[in-house]
Each structure stands twice: as C-alpha cells, then as structure tokens.
Amino acid sequence: MPFFEAKGIEKKYKDFTLSASFSIEEGEFLSIIGPSGSGKSTLLSLIAGIEDPDSGTITIGGKDITKERIQKRGIAMVFQDFSLFPSMNTERNIQFGMKEKDRAKRKELSDKLLEVVGLKGYGKRDVSSLSGGEAQRVALARAIAAEPRIILFDEPLSALDPPLRKHLRSIIRGIHDSLGITVIYVTHDIEEAFAVSDRILVMRDGRVITVKDAEELYRKPDSLFTAFFTGEGTALPAHLAFENMEGSIFFRPEEAEIAEDRLSPEMYPRHLVLEECKVVSADFSGPHYMLGLSYKGYPVLVEASRKPRKADVSVKIPKDSVLILP
C-alpha cells in the first residue's frame, strides 16, 4: 500500500473541474508541474485540507484523512509568499508548530533548524527584516519543526530571483535527503522540477496526464502536450516520414544533426532524414545555435554548434530517438 494516496478526488468549480488520482511512497520527492490554471495549487489545497473535495478519498499510511480537520492532518505547507507570522520573531515562527512543550528544548530545536537552513543566529530577527530567500528558509524550518508526515511546497521559489532559486532548491533537496521527509512540490518551472524530483506528475486542465521520473518524462513523453511542456522539440505529421502512419513524430533539437551537403536517405537506414530544409532563423544561445528550419512548411528545431553557411540544409535524426505520439 502506498504511503500517501489520493483516490478519485474531485472538486467542481463554476468553470473548472479538478479530478485526480495518484500516490507516493514514504520519503519520496514528487513534483507537480503544469501550465497555470491546470489545478496544481488546488490539488495541494485539497491535500492540505484548506479546501474539501466533493468526492474521493485521501489516505496517509492507510488512514483515511479526507474528512480530517486541517489541524490534525500532519501536513505542513510552504507557501509562495512565505507567510511568516509578522507578529512573531524568526525563532517564534519556527517554534509555532512544534509539538515539544519544554521551552529550553524548543529553543534548542529551533536553533538547530536555523543552522540546518543556513541561518544560524537569526533567531531574534524580526521577520520583516528578512530577505525573500531568508524568509523562505525560515518558512521551511517552520514546516520541518512541526514534524509533519508530508511537506507540501506551493511554488516556494517563484517569488525569488533566479540565482537564489537554484541555491534554495538544492537546500530543499538536501534537507529532504538527510531527513527522509515525504515531499509534494508544486512548481511551474520545469528545470526546477527536473533538478529536485524523484518523480514528476504532469497536470493539465484539472487532470493528471502522467507521472514519471524526470529523465523518462523528457526522453519518453507519452503525449505531445507533455513533450512540449517539458522542453523544446519538433512535431511533424507522421506520414511525412513514414508511409501510412497516423499521428505525429516528435524529436528533441539536440537529437538532430544538420548537414550542409545533400544526404541520401539510403545511406542512413538507421536515421530519419529530412531533405531540403530552409534555414529560417539561427539564435545563438552561448553553447550552441538553435536553428529554426522549415521543412515542407513545417517548423523544425535543430541544435547546431556552428551557423550553417547555406540556406538549404538536410537534417538527420537517429530513428530510436524519434517518438511516435498520438
């Protein structure tokens, strides 16, 4: 039996319906990604008990908590806007949810947690004096201090600057690894999800599209939506490449290779060859060029180390990295 399971939970709004089922194992780090409005945050609210589902059940450790009060669920949450309590100093915030009653031990524990999140000596600081990154680390310490069975993160890094985000996400993952806490982490940043998660759940229009580990999600997406949501790529009608085939073919730009000379398909039986591609654009991104090509009127994206000198090129892609998607 999985540690946490959401079974057929549904929540109807005026113009939006969320319906989701998924499960996670104890100690797992699951990210939920999806476009804005796909229901990621709503799903978290339902799990935390901030909102109640219309139907379905949520279990933790085999116990049904669907009707359990928000206070009794043992689920802590870290919010996008940090949500530190302005009426208390940093230390008090961390001690807020502690089960320990003894004052000295509470103090000892909060000092230890401050050290864990890299804020040693910040205990007496007024929370309004903290920077965004510091505030979110305090919020993280506060969540851990409550000894929850699961910590939910609702886009915790969205309000921070990009360099800080990278630093903080590694702190979050590090704490997860050392304490073995079960984490559900909502983000709209794919790179962030790839970097921190054991598995990734993709949502769209209130539904769970797929749950996979990061590499599989990127290399073997099972729909065009997931494919494009998790990175760049090219989709072409399948019949352009293979006779009598339905659906679309999909490949990532780094899998493709351009050739300025004409390639004959017969010479490359293990590749898919696209001839007579027109170069439309070449964007330099530092490590490489991202070429925008046009193949029979369809856009094709290819990564190249140099800018092609000709306006017409051929493209070859290993057949085993070409996906056929419905």
Binding site: A48, G49, I50, I70, Q71, K72, R73, I75, A76, M77, F79, Q80, D81, S83, F85, S87, M88, F96, G97, A139, R142, A143, A146, P148, D154
Partner: peptide, 22 residues
C-alpha cells in the same frame, strides 16, 4: 493573506488561536 491563516492551520492551530495569535 489566506496563506498566513492556512499556514497556522497546517501547523496545528485552531481557528480561534489563529485569530488571536496571527
């Protein structure tokens, strides 16, 4: 902010104490 009250609830505080303390 809603999240402030929700944070207190998830940390085990009752509605009444959340009102008084937060």
């Amino acid at each position: 902010p809603d999240s402030l009250s929700n944070a207190a609830y998830t940390l085990g505080r009752s509605t009444g104490r959340t009102y008084r303390e937060i």
